[in-house]
Amino acid sequence: MQMMNEQTGIPFILNGRPVRSLSAPGTRLLEVLRDEFHLTGTKCGCKEGECGACSVLINGRLVTSCLIAVGSIAQQAVLTIEGYRETERFAVLDAAFADMAAVQCGFCTPGMVLATEALLSEHPHPSAEEIRQGLSGNLCRCTGYQALIQAVRTAAQRGAGLW
């Protein structure tokens, strides 16, 4: 049994490095990432799991970090956009999103990129419907989604073999 509080801290893996959060175990992972570890690429949009701007990967699975108590992820591996930025896959997504004009204000983009990573990991060659499903937890108020769908499709073509 593991007992946790602000003194014991909560150990987890953040972007490949072991860290220890000293926040209360009930604190939103979103706030731990932004305020304690100063990783502000993860955005706070709604704090109720509606918008997907705070999406991160935990053990490779897409989750909304606003709905996760940091204590619930002890020992697990969190990947934020800052960690993902170092990967070859990110470079493909970065170029595809830019080329297809899938980024406007940029607020939803970190979540969209990680949702795309989760999608392509599961379906390297997704259908239009699978793309819509994969991004269905992420809201974008700028692009009208069509450019995002194009970007994912483009990335899947260009990145053949990477996923």
Binding site: G49, R61, V63, A115, A118, Q133, G134, S136, G137
Partner: peptide, 8 residues
């Protein structure tokens, strides 16, 4: 909901 919530 959507995939991020279905994962939790």
């Amino acid at each position: 909901a959507a995939p991020p919530i279905r994962n939790l």
